[in-house]
C-alpha cells in the first residue's frame, strides 16, 4: 500500500513540477528538432542520403536529447535539500527513484517519441520504418532514462557535472543505439525487426531492476 502511495505521490509531484516549470519538456523536444534539422545542412539535402541515415540520426539525436535532460532528474532536489528528505522516506528509496525515472521518461522520453515521426518525414525515412521507429523508441527510451539515472546520481556534487555526465553515460547508451537503429533499418529493408525489438525489450527488462538500485546507491553516497 505504502509503496503504491509513495510511487504515485512522487510521480504526481514530479509531473506537477515539470508542468509548472513548463519549459523543460519543450526544451528537450526543441533540441531534438533543431539538432536533426542541422543534419541536412551538414550532409546535404539529397533524398537518398538522408533516407539512408535517417534512423541513425534520429536515434543519436534522441540519445543526446535524453542525456541533456538528465541533469534535472536529481540535481535540483539535491541543491534544495529535497533529496536528503526523499532518502528518509519510510518506503524503500528504490521506489522513489523508480518514480522519478518514470516521471522523467513521461516528460522527456514520451515527447521525443511524439516528435520522432515528424522528423522522420523531414529526413525522408521510408514509410515502412515508421511503426518500427515508434515501437523501438517506446522500448528504448525508458532504458535511456534508467541508465542515465545512474550517471545523474553519480555526478551530484561533482565539478563540471554536465560534461562528466556525457562521458559516463554515452558509452553505456551504445547497445540501445545499436538495436534501436537496427530495428528501424531492418524494417526499412523489408526484414523482420522482431529480433532487434526483442533485444531492446530484454535490455529494458535488465535495466528496470538494476538501474534504480544502482542509482539509489549513488544517491545515498552523494548525500552522505
Amino acid at each position: 500500500m505504502a509503496l503504491g502511495a509513495t510511487f504515485a505521490g512522487v510521480i504526481r509531484r514530479e509531473l506537477r513540477l515539470a508542468l509548472r516549470q513548463g519549459s523543460d519538456s519543450i526544451m528537450v523536444v526543441t533540441f531534438f528538432v533543431l539538432t536533426v534539422v542541422l543534419f541536412p545542412f551538414g550532409i546535404g539535402p539529397e533524398v537518398n542520403i538522408l533516407e539512408r541515415v535517417s534512423a541513425g540520426i534520429l536515434w543519436v539525436t534522441a540519445l543526446l536529447a535524453s542525456m541533456l535532460s538528465l541533469d534535472r532528474l536529481f540535481q535540483t532536489d539535491y541543491d534544495d535539500g529535497s533529496l536528503e528528505l526523499l532518502t528518509l522516506t519510510p518506503t524503500a528509496m528504490e521506489i522513489v527513484v523508480v518514480a522519478k525515472i518514470a516521471a522523467h521518461w513521461l516528460t522527456t522520453g514520451l515527447p521525443l517519441i511524439v516528435a520522432a515521426p515528424l522528423l522522420a518525414v523531414l529526413l525522408h525515412m521510408d514509410g515502412a520504418g515508421f511503426v518500427t521507429l515508434l515501437l523501438a523508441m517506446l522500448l528504448g527510451t525508458p532504458s535511456l532514462s534508467l541508465i542515465g539515472s545512474i550517471g545523474a546520481a553519480l555526478v551530484l556534487g561533482a565539478r563540471r557535472g554536465g560534461v562528466l555526465l556525457s562521458l559516463l553515460i554515452l558509452p553505456l547508451y551504445i547497445p540501445v543505439l545499436i538495436f534501436g537503429v537496427g530495428a528501424v533499418d531492418a524494417a526499412i529493408h523489408g526484414f523482420s525487426p522482431d529480433a532487434h525489438l526483442m533485444v531492446l525489450g530484454a535490455l529494458l527488462l535488465v535495466a528496470l531492476p538494476l538501474c534504480p538500485w544502482a542509482a539509489s546507491a549513488a544517491v545515498r553516497q552523494a548525500i552522505e
Binding site: R13, L17, D80, G81, P90, A92
Partner: peptide, 20 residues
C-alpha cells in the same frame, strides 16, 4: 526505512519547491 518512519529531520536546506 523503518527508522526513517520514526524521525523528522530538519536540515540546513528547507526543501521547498519554488513552483509548488
Amino acid at each position: 526505512e523503518r527508522h526513517a518512519g520514526r524521525i523528522h529531520y530538519v536540515g540546513h536546506h528547507d526543501a521547498i519547491k519554488p513552483v509548488l
